[in-house]
Design a protein around this nucleic acid. Sequence first.
RNA 1: CGGGGCGUGGCGCAGUUGGGAGCGCGCAGCGUUCGGGACGCUGAGGUCGCCGGUUCAAGCCCGGCCGCCCCGACCA
Length: 484
Amino acid sequence: MEKKKEFEQGITSQKEDFSQWYIDTVLKTAMADYSCVRGCMNIRPYGYAVWENIQAEFDRRFKETGHENAYFPLFVPESLLMKEAEHVEGFAPEVPWVTHVGGEALTERLAIRPTSETVICAAYKEWIQSYRDLPVLINQWANVVRWEKRTRLFLRTSEFLWQEGHTCHRTEAEAREETMKMLEVYRECCETALAMPVVKGRKSESEKFAGAVETYSIEGLLADGNAIQNGTSHFLGQNFSKAFDIKFLDEDNTEKHVWQTSWGVSTRLVGALIMRHGDDSGLILPPRIAPIQAVIVPVYKEATKGLVLEEAAKIHAELRGAGIRAKCDDRETVRPGFKYNEWEMKGVPLRIEIGPRDIEKGHVVVARRIDREKTFVQRAELAKSMPAMLETFQADLFERARADMSENTREASTLDELAEIISTQRGFVWAGWDGSPETEAEVKEKTKATIRNIPLEGGEPTQGLKDLVSGKPAKHRALLARAY
RNA sequence: CGGGGCGUGGCGCAGUUGGGAGCGCGCAGCGUUCGGGACGCUGAGGUCGCCGGUUCAAGCCCGGCCGCCCCGACCA
């Protein structure tokens, strides 16, 4: 009890900075299972299970859209990394190098990959000769390193796990189509599996991927009002294929450079998940990716122990039989209340309480993590009704996030209005933009908000819309926010 | 790399004018408990970040170094 009081006092005292409070209480508290060494995540089994389930959701969709997995080298020879000018410039500041082996200097130093375009393009050059070899649709699950000046647990770590898709196409149209197709896969997966609503859109020139012609993103809004980029899809044009000389002989017997795309999501999604859905009591995981979807907590006294534990085990078996990821917490060393709190912190969607009184009455108590609502469910119906309860939970979680995002999306017509909104309420802000880098820079300078993207839906300027800085006619209706 | 802060049992911290290394949580044992983070008793666990200096005496004062966190510039 005392600990709880301390915890609550801690929250109150830190609420002046809402984001910091949120990170301290939700991200870090909930992350008891994680640690961070020099900005590199150390993910223990429960947390890794979350990532594995996220991986599985994305991977399934990649396969459904015709992609195959492969794995490429961790080290990138310097000469290779240097081939695409913009790419080098963009990544150089954050690339660590291997220069020595056993005390002996290497003749060519090796970069630890910040992303794999260069190694993969080197491979593609060898693989592709004919239009018949196209398209190449490959994805890689791997770790990458970007030595950022500042790290933030899960949201920006020096080393992170991710997925990078790299495709080659015969025509520009086909590559552009792929870019948009994967962006849509990301949106659908984020919203369906992770219950996180996102906005699809195109990045500004200054924010696009180093070496890309165009970058698209899905932008989400966290519970603290900060935006987060949950995934990106790039149309690379022929920038890399020209730099790496990836050519194919087309049907018309002329040599052409391939058109390429790349796209990625990372373990940042785990951080986004925590800070989108979590609350003061810890994580709330969407059932679709929760390592444990339902936890059974037996409640008993010495006299009823045998009976209750037996029933709990039976329920456990039934749920597993019904394909539910269930766990029976039959630890005898901690009391039920402790278990409730512990599993709530770990974000388990549903908790099933079973005690002597329940057995007598032929029901169980099912408690929902999202709103702590408790209902009685007939014992005989439990396994059967579980999938629907999980589906409802998933839908409710998404709806709650969607409603929050919509409530925290506003409009601004001047820089002052934007500044006011950003400093008092945060969230997304729509504003007219003439497309100039000057406006973009001015906005960032004055409000710390950035242009997240130009949404595919709603990004067209409305009649008479003006740039919020220059007052010139707007070319776009952009979505702005403070972001991680 | 600029500005600020902090290094004391596993975690979170207190430590007054320099003289006993402490508290809470956690951990171990025993007992009572068990429907929302239990309680009692007993106990284990620390070269006070590192090096040097001042002093009869340093967690505390001085110098240097190392590490971490936060705010900026950079970014998935």
